[in-house]
């Protein structure tokens, strides 16, 4: 197979999944900003409903910030948080009825399992319950170890117009691949 055939197949497969764009690798805050701008611009050009664009953008930001902060594959420069990078993948796409945002990254198995437990509870709530849960979390003082992850997850579930989907694939070395999909 030629290199063009090879990548054509790869490209077509992505498009077949409804992918608008996908980023794999190390993400930083500046990559988040640039991808977010590209996303907003595309939505504007296609005259997408402003409320849909806002929901999509909000889920995108929370998803990517979770990768930057919580991926187990990470790079941190000495100067502190703003230069940190986390490795993972983020995909924005569209199926027949919805836009979707999927993120995936490697986590420690135990952390992934605890994430999934929190997400199971969120996925079982209706929108009114998610909203009041968000309000409760907003009032709680932030814990030192938690840079807002739980409220970020609630924000993702709140903006999703269908129940969120998520899962964990064991990598066998105490780590696992975590993924989370939201629909708008």
């Amino acid at each position: 197979m030629s290199i063009a055939d090879d990548y054509l197949y790869f490209h077509q497969r992505m498009l077949g999944h409804g992918v608008i764009f996908s980023f794999v690798g190390y993400v930083s805050e500046s990559i988040l900003f640039s991808l977010g701008e590209a996303l907003k611009q595309k939505m504007r050009l296609e005259a997408t409903d402003a409320n849909v664009t806002k929901r999509l953008f909000s889920v995108f930001v929370e998803q990517v910030q979770n990768i930057i902060r919580y991926s187990d594959e990470r790079l941190e420069a000495g100067s502190g948080r703003p230069s940190e990078m986390g490795s993972g993948m983020v995909t924005v796409g569209r199926d027949e009825a919805h836009f979707f945002v999927v993120c995936g990254n490697i986590v420690k198995h135990d952390e992934g399992a605890s994430l999934c437990r929190r997400l199971e509870a969120l996925a079982a709530m209706d929108s009114a319950a998610i909203r009041s849960h968000y309000r409760e979390k907003l009032r709680e003082p932030a814990e030192e170890s938690d840079r807002g992850a739980s409220i970020g997850l609630i924000e993702i579930a709140r903006r999703s117009t269908r129940p969120i989907e998520f899962g964990l694939a064991d990598l066998g070395d105490g780590r696992a691949f975590f993924c989370l999909k939201a629909y708008i």
């Binding site: 806002k54 930001v61 907003l138 409220i151 970020g152 924000e155």
Partner: peptide, 12 residues
């Protein structure tokens, strides 16, 4: 126009 969840905490 928009704020993320960490900013929501700060606004609170």
């Amino acid at each position: 126009l928009y704020f993320n969840s960490s900013s929501a905490k700060a606004l609170m």
